[in-house]
Design a binder for these strands. Sequence first.
RNA 1: GGCGGGGUAGCCAAGUGGUAAGGCAGGGCUCUGCAAAAGCCUCAUCCGUCGGUUCGAUUCCGACCCUCGCCUCCA
Length: 496
Amino acid sequence: MALKLFNTLSRSIQAFVPLDPAGKKVGMYCCGPTVYDFAHIGNWRTFIFGDLVRRHLEFKGYTVTQVMNITDVEDKIIKHVRLSRQSDLPRRSGTETGATADETKTSLREFTGKYEAAFFEDLKTLNCRLPHHTPHATEHIAEIISLIEKLIARGIAYQAADGSVYFSIEKYRGCGCTYGQLLKLNFDELRTGERVKSDEYAKESVADFALWKARVPEDGDVFWPGPWGEGRPGWHIECSAMSTKILGPSFDLHLGGEDLIFPHHEDEIAQSEGATGKHFVKYWLHGAHLLVEGKKMSKSLGNFFTLRDLLAKGFTGREIRYSLLTAHYRETFNFTLEGLQGAHAALARIDECLGKLREIAGRDALPRVQVPQSGIGPTELVKDFTDALDDDLNISAAWGTVFEWVRETNRQLAENSLSTAKATAALTAWDKIDSVLGIGAPDEIAVPTELKALLETRQAARKSKDFKRADAMRDELKAKGWVIEDTPKGPKLKKL
RNA sequence: GGCGGGGUAGCCAAGUGGUAAGGCAGGGCUCUGCAAAAGCCUCAUCCGUCGGUUCGAUUCCGACCCUCGCCUCCA
């Protein structure tokens, strides 16, 4: 089966055909983090969704170039930097801080650098493949300026009286371009009442958006020189500049959270197609948001979690990854702590099965009971799994296949009918699909030697039928967080 | 107001015009000195409500109720 994806542009599921005539290379751009805070669980759902798309494409044999922007200059960042400077430098909290431009720029970088580092750490914790390029907005000011110049040259952008440069939607549409490709827009019905008062802007039309924001006092020293005076990039422009720089004027995939459809992605299309005259992106994919415990995540409800919050509660990265990967990407997902507990149990089930398979695979060929095999084997596992994901990334169906395979494997394990060769084949199949799931193996926790000794002493006590003493030692181990698993082949220790 | 998603067992979540995947939790069993761990089995006469189309609808159509999102910064 060929890969099919839901394209927001057509609002339908389409066959995925890369722009590359050879059908091999795929360019993919994922909207990345704005580094003003730790990324929360909702952000992570979207980033893991991007990781899934990339992994599945690579699994299918495509050579993917993944780009993820790091937005490191933006209103909120500037605000936070300003506040942090004011608290750092209370005596200077006047109109003029006395700081030089370089000092402040450093502090902007320090501020964003902290969250950027955290972002990459979290990415690793969740076992996401590192994007091939992670360009920074602040390092692409030249490209941004050049893009804006193109738009001005084409008459689609203009500098207003406030010094800022805006994108003219009217001029853009006048060129025969379409504004509103990703969603239906009714410009006469756009609610303008709740927006920031339109008369605060010097732009020609309310819907026009800023490409270059003229420097204002609140920006502090966060500004760059530009042909239109000092200022900084608008919100959408860096994505257009960086994506086309790395992936070219037209590329295959652009991903983001569903909230970015408008205005961010719509404006990206306008800027990019307005400047290049070429079709920007072939497939737009949008991930749905999540709820936490059935409600919209908010700090006041106490259901706002960063990845770090969940790690502090004792959950692991792979449990969180699994949990965020259980539901289809276009459905709102209800993220619950109960679900995370369930993730722990579900993963343990897979781990247990794989552990037994490895045990058999690692041995010399042993005689096995010959039982006619039915149900899902390694071949079916890979095929059904692939088919499920090819169908617009139906991950739930894919998991269904995985667990059916686990159950069938366990049955065979129980009847001792799995040969060394079959176990090896099963593990090879698992490795294939795990290259997409990215679940990996649990962290190996070494059993402390004193606990091993305790376990041996308990065994001795059991042998001599001193069960009271043996049970006391079992309790002692449990108190230390280790549970004994008595198997026919002897006891094992498992970390709780 | 405009536009767009959802409502499937205790919880999470796939899916199909022909009678409901999977995970967690629960229950039963196996194993065990007893447990635990692990494994197996089991668990929705029913898919928001009411109508309609159909031999047959959870799946198609209509109405209604509830809910979420976008239209403004936002994954």
